[in-house]
Design a protein around this nucleic acid. Structure first.
Lengths: 188, 188
DNA sequence: CTTTATTTATAAGGCGGCTAACTATCAGGA
DNA sequence: TCCTGATAGTTAGCCGCCTTATAAATAAAG
């Protein structure tokens, strides 16, 4: 249901202590990193509890969100390939999710007459009703989760996290062992 | 290897638009929430790539971190129960992790002579070497991930995320549908 | 028509969570 | 002493979600 995370983060002095043994450890960066991981997991834990109370999972919820018709011209998916792309997972994963959603009567697969390789995925009316029943509580929960922050703090948080995301994306493809370390033999 | 997440976040106007349909949706809170989820996942993705390059997983890494001897008096675990507690997972989960770690020669289980129900878990010297080989790169990676932020921004981020974590913890046990909604019939 | 690319689905596998049930042990009390 | 209850760890069975590799149908381009 959730992911293995530290319950209590090490105190800052502890990080400073450890940075003597490991000069690459920057206490402030490390602390921000751990807070990020933990806050993300705590928030996901709360969301999962909400989902579980409605007999759904985060994956199925996201797929249905992506399938919902939106007024504001936001991205909407209709095929498994689009879903996989929007969610950054493999198509096989989406097939599995759609299988269970279809079994439970939440989505319908229909062959596309124009391109017969493609399937079009539609939310059933049952799913529409379900989502409209669950979404107000979902949004209230998000509001509550962020309720300790002022509007300004929420914006600051968004800004800082965007920076982190961009950095993470830039680090994703290339290898990890820092600059100018080409092959220092830690390939255990 | 990672979790299903939105690749591209909806634009802010899109959230404003949606907030007309769902009055409970607060665009700024929702945006911060999504940035948090996404940044967390992106960061975890990068870390997982690093772990995978060394044939390890995040769970096994965390267990070994908890087992390492630390100088600064930080929390260290020696029994499965302590590990489960520190990591907030069930003991059965820890048993599974320890099984694979033991199979790969990273930990040793020894019965506690004082209380024969208990096992004491120790890192092998192989694991010690492994961790000392991997940790510098690990910490460098964290430093890089947070490298887009100034020291002040890192501290601000830690502070804001702490607020979010605390709020999430306070929301964890109680139910989710907001205040004064006792039983409005969305128990689909 | 043939080749190549694309879309979906399937199969097999792995990780990492969970609960429930079981064994062994410890500790307290009648 | 023996029963009882709590605790530590393992086991068994389950599920969610992810992967890669493969297959089958179709499309598109030469």
């Amino acid at each position: 249901m959730q992911r293995l995370v530290l319950k209590d983060l090490p105190r800052y002095e502890c990080l400073v202590e450890a940075s003597r043994q490991f000069p690459d450890l920057q206490p402030a960066a490390c602390e921000a990193f751990m807070h990020l991981i933990r806050a993300g997991e705590e928030v996901i834990r709360v969301m999962n509890a909400h989902f579980a109370a409605h007999n759904i999972t985060q994956g199925r919820f996201l797929v249905m969100m992506l399938l919902m018709e939106k007024e504001g011209g936001c991205p909407t998916a209709t095929t498994p390939a689009e879903l996989a792309d929007l969610a950054s997972v493999s198509r096989a994963t989406i097939t599995g999710l759609l299988d269970t959603l279809e079994r439970d009567g939440f989505v319908r697969r229909e062959p596309d007459p124009a391109d017969r390789r493609q399937m079009s995925i539609y939310l059933t009316s049952k799913a529409q009703e379900f989502m409209h029943g669950i979404l107000p509580g979902h949004f209230r929960l998000i509001t509550q989760l962020m309720g300790n922050l002022s509007s300004g703090e929420q914006q600051t948080l968004s800004r800082l996290l965007t920076k982190v995301s961009m950095q993470a994306l830039s680090l994703a493809p290339g290898e990890t062992d820092g600059p100018a370390v080409s092959g220092s033999g830690e390939t255990v």
